[in-house]
Design a protein around this nucleic acid. Structure first.
Length: 117
DNA sequence: AGGGTGACGATCA
DNA sequence: ATGATCGCCACCC
């Protein structure tokens, strides 16, 4: 957490930086394009943290959450949420092939960040 | 320290 | 295509 006014704030720990970087990647996905939990984790420099990407998305507000999908363009939400996600995506022009998003046409390619420990 | 959780992902039956 | 398994990661008791 950053403090205002230039006072010595508590140094952000590894997880906070991780969370911020992941959130930034999600926010950078343009309208009409999508990505996956795994790809976002890798792009942020945390390969393997796909589950955490979902956790971050879940607890953040004002994020384009509908643009984040499971591997292969699969909607991982359940019930009403899943329906809403599909509607929101179709509303911004994202096409589906059966149950999944046509990744070939809509997957957003990030410029990878360097790997980190 | 130990065990359980989830909007994951790859693999296999 | 579908469900079970297992490995992963940070969190939360």
């Amino acid at each position: 957490m950053r403090l205002r006014g230039g006072f010595a704030a508590t140094k952000p720990n590894r997880s906070e930086i991780m969370r911020d970087r992941i959130a930034a990647m999600i926010r950078s996905i343009p309208r009409g394009r999508v990505s996956t939990y795994g790809a976002i984790a890798r792009a942020a420099g945390y390969a393997g943290a796909s589950r955490y990407v979902a956790a971050v998305l879940r607890r953040s507000v004002g994020m384009p959450w509908q643009r984040v999908l499971g591997s292969g363009g699969e909607i991982k939400l359940r019930g009403d949420s899943a329906v809403e996600q599909r509607l929101r995506l179709e509303a911004e022009g994202v096409r589906f092939r059966g149950k999944r998003v046509d990744m070939k046409a809509h997957e957003w390619k990030f410029v990878r960040a360097g790997k980190r420990k």
